[in-house]
Design a protein around this nucleic acid. Structure first.
Length: 711
DNA sequence: ACCCCTCGAGTTCT
DNA sequence: CTCGAGGGGT
């Protein structure tokens, strides 16, 4: 059967005959997809498309109750529709927690607990410490070990009955296993979505034209409150247990002891839970969690401490709506809302048009953010971001601010959908999205076709040329390039090396010395820095050209294979002349790490007379040194090394250069092929992954010993 | 024909 | 740091 999509005709426009026919078709299709999904585990449509079918079915049935079929999908077992969620009164209220925002608040908490229990100031108070999951609280009632009811937190006193939906969660046991299961226990915990699952869900929602969720918590809440539990079943909701309400005969005397029991019974626990004995330990845990926050894969908004001894918990009791024996230690919020004042289009080195959000400055996670990338045209359309909108900003752990979505309630009247420009803002050339010939899909990036005539691209290429891993000319950074280009001093790479000579011939008032901020000394330094780069390694030279798809590594591959600038130039020119079937094309294609895409990019570059001219002008000015093979064998020759965390004794680039000089390959991500992971302080996800894969992990000192040849 | 690994490109703020 | 995609191995 063909992948079906709900038909478009509005339900209220359907005739009775049409409705009847469509209900029949929907019953057949949904049954078919159910079979594929449940029995064969091979769905052929996305969950969102499937949901759309079911929702359409429900809508038609609602309008034509007389047409509801005996085999209606909505009446199938496991999919019983719940008209309205029933209300559930919590036997023991689900309270909130007091908050701590600073270390001082935490120390105060310890002091309050000691004072209340009349303990000495130096008495040990054990606390459990655990991440505070940002999801929705849920209460699970187990009678004789069987799950009989699930309810949301609601207002703390009364929640909603979501039992059929919760029953579909794979991580929530229907029956508690093992010893010591009490006759009655109400387990509490958090239902949440992982980031990757959330992204996937949203992509599917978007593809199906359905609602896109603003964040994982909303998506989890939306998924749990589905009227049709078979939709919930298809959402990858997860669960962590962290407490309990009513319970009979637990026969355990600590909070952590109960967690251990939970685990034995088959309830999922957050693996990061631990016991702390001092304020210092607790604060260290908080710091650790904040550092790991981004790498966890799910949202947390702080950590929670609970007095470990249950008899003490009982004595401490409650103040108004929060227990005295627990506290939530919040992180600095990493999310904020602000106004999007404008969308600016930046033109990159390759001509890519990248939209940037200009924001009313707002503090997120401790820094003031005023810019955020909007990635591309589709992203703006998907989130329907408009100028003047109030948007939510998040600093994901990677530190880079992201626009998560729009606060629709605050959209100004008359705000129009954003129209992405189809001409380059810098040069006016057409900006197009290339269409892949094979798949017929348009590239996500729109590019300026101006190429050599586009000043924005020219500037970006020059910035790339002088950047750290290319020519690395001190005193000639992005700012200077911008200015020198605008003043006509440097229009192309070769101009850098004739700058001094030309400057000397200029009229007094046009010379660099007449420019604000340029004294005799800084001019001398700049010219010296330029002279120092008249000799350059072949790989850096190739990289500096900024040819598409040729980054640092590929430039090195080419340099290594071809050896000299002349060989490189000859091979590329011959391939450009000879085309796909020439020997020169094959020679390049055969180089390790080089494929058709890279060769085609080379050909594009070398087919352009202006580029050849610029290249010849440049090579008249600089001496390109032949590629030099790495030094003799060392303990790390041909090993793959990954650096992570903060190194103390040298910077990352230094460490990388050293490793490469000794014949090692340095990569950015840990995989099964990695030989060593060198972990500095505050190492995060890469370290975790290395442990996962059983890759050897070295401290910085061990690493230094290894490379210096000691054992 | 896939899948894994790695590379390239784009990005914010201090 | 992350995404998307190129390259190469199975």
């Amino acid at each position: 059967m063909k992948a079906a999509v709900a038909s478009n005709k509005p339900v209220d426009k359907l005739s009775e005959a049409e409705a009847k026919a469509e209900l029949e078709r929907l019953a057949r299709e949904i049954a078919h997809h159910d079979e594929l999904y449940y029995a064969q585990d091979a769905p052929e449509i996305s969950d969102a498309d499937y949901d759309a079918l079911r929702q359409r079915n429900a809508a038609i049935e609602a309008r034509f109750p007389s047409l509801v079929r005996a085999d209606s999908p909505s009446s199938r077992v496991g999919a019983a529709p719940v008209a309205v969620f029933g209300k559930v009164r919590h036997a023991v209220p689900m309270l909130s927690l007091g908050n701590a925002f600073t270390a001082e608040d935490v120390v105060d908490f310890f002091a309050r607990v000691r004072r209340f229990l009349r303990l000495a100031d130096d008495a040990t108070v054990e606390l459990t410490a655990e991440p505070k999951i940002d999801g929705l609280s849920i209460s699970l009632t187990y009678e004789s070990g069987r799950l009989v009811q699930a309810a949301t937190r609601g207002d703390g006193t009364t929640g909603e009955n979501v039992t059929p939906n919760v029953m579909t969660l794979k991580q929530i046991p229907r029956r508690l296993a093992g010893k010591g299961v009490p006759g009655l226990i109400e387990v509490r915990g958090e239902i949440y979505l992982r980031h990757d699952d959330f992204e996937k869900l949203n992509a599917e929602q978007a593809a199906a034209g359905a609602k896109v969720f603003a964040n994982p918590r909303n998506a989890a809440a939306g998924s749990l409150r589905q009227l049709d539990s078979s939709i919930t079943a298809r959402r990858p909701l997860r669960f962590f247990a962290y407490g309990w309400g009513a319970a009979s005969a637990l026969s355990v005397d600590t909070q952590f002891g109960v967690y251990k029991r939970f685990e034995q019974w088959g309830l999922p626990l957050n693996p990061l839970m631990q016991v702390c004995r001092t304020a210092e330990e607790v604060l260290a845990f908080h710091r650790e969690m904040e550092a790991q926050r981004a790498a966890l894969g799910y949202d947390i908004d702080g950590v929670v401490y609970k007095v470990n001894r249950l008899d003490w918990q009982e004595r401490l009791g409650f103040v108004s709506r929060a227990p005295r024996w627990a506290i939530a230690h919040k992180f600095q919020p990493q999310e904020a809302t602000t106004r999007l004042n404008d969308i600016e289009i930046q033109v990159g080195r390759t001509g890519a048009l990248t939209p940037a959000a200009k924001l009313a400055p707002v503090t997120v996670g401790g820094v003031v953010v005023s810019n955020a990338t909007l990635h591309n045209e589709d992203e703006i359309a998907r989130k329907d971001i408009r100028i003047g909108d109030t948007v939510t900003i998040r600093r994901a752990g990677d530190v880079i601010p992201q626009v998560m979505g729009v606060v629709l309630d605050k959209r100004p009247k008359g705000a129009k959908a954003y129209k992405f420009p189809e001409v380059c803002p810098a040069c006016g050339s057409a900006a197009v999205r290339e269409v892949d010939e094979r798949t017929g899909r348009a590239d996500v990036v729109r590019r300026c076709t101006g190429g050599l005539i586009c000043p924005a691209q020219a500037k970006e290429r020059l910035k790339h040329f002088v950047s750290r891993n290319a020519f690395d000319i001190e005193g000639l950074g992005e700012k200077q390039i911008e200015a020198f280009y605008d003043e006509g001093r440097i229009m192309q790479p070769a101009d850098i090396f004739t700058l001094a000579e030309r400057d000397a011939r200029l009229a007094e008032d046009k010379r660099l010395a007449a420019k604000k901020g340029y004294g005799a000394k800084s001019i001398e330094n700049l010219f010296k820095a330029i002279e120092a780069r008249r000799a350059i390694a072949l790989d850096r030279f190739i990289y500096a050209l900024g040819i598409r798809h040729i980054g640092e590594t590929t430039a090195r591959d080419l340099a290594k294979a071809l050896g000299t600038f002349d060989a490189f130039r000859t091979a590329a020119v011959a391939a450009a002349k000879g085309g796909k079937d020439s020997d020169a094309y094959q020679e390049l294609d055969n180089i390790e790490g080089i494929g058709a895409t890279v060769v085609d990019a080379l050909i594009d570059f070398f087919s352009e007379p202006h580029n050849l001219q610029a290249l010849d002008d440049l090579s008249a000015q600089v001496a390109v040194e032949p590629f030099v093979r790495a030094t003799a064998a060392s303990p790390i020759t041909d090993k793959t090394v990954v650096f992570t965390g903060t190194l103390e004794k040298m910077t990352r680039p230094e460490a990388k250069a050293l490793a490469e000089r000794l014949g090692a390959k340095v990569t950015g991500s840990v995989s099964a092929k990695t030989d060593y992971v060198v972990a500095g302080s505050d190492a995060g996800s890469k370290l975790a992954k290395a442990r996962d894969l059983g890759v050897e992990v070295l401290t910085e000192d061990e690493w230094l010993k290894l490379v210096s040849g000691e054992t």
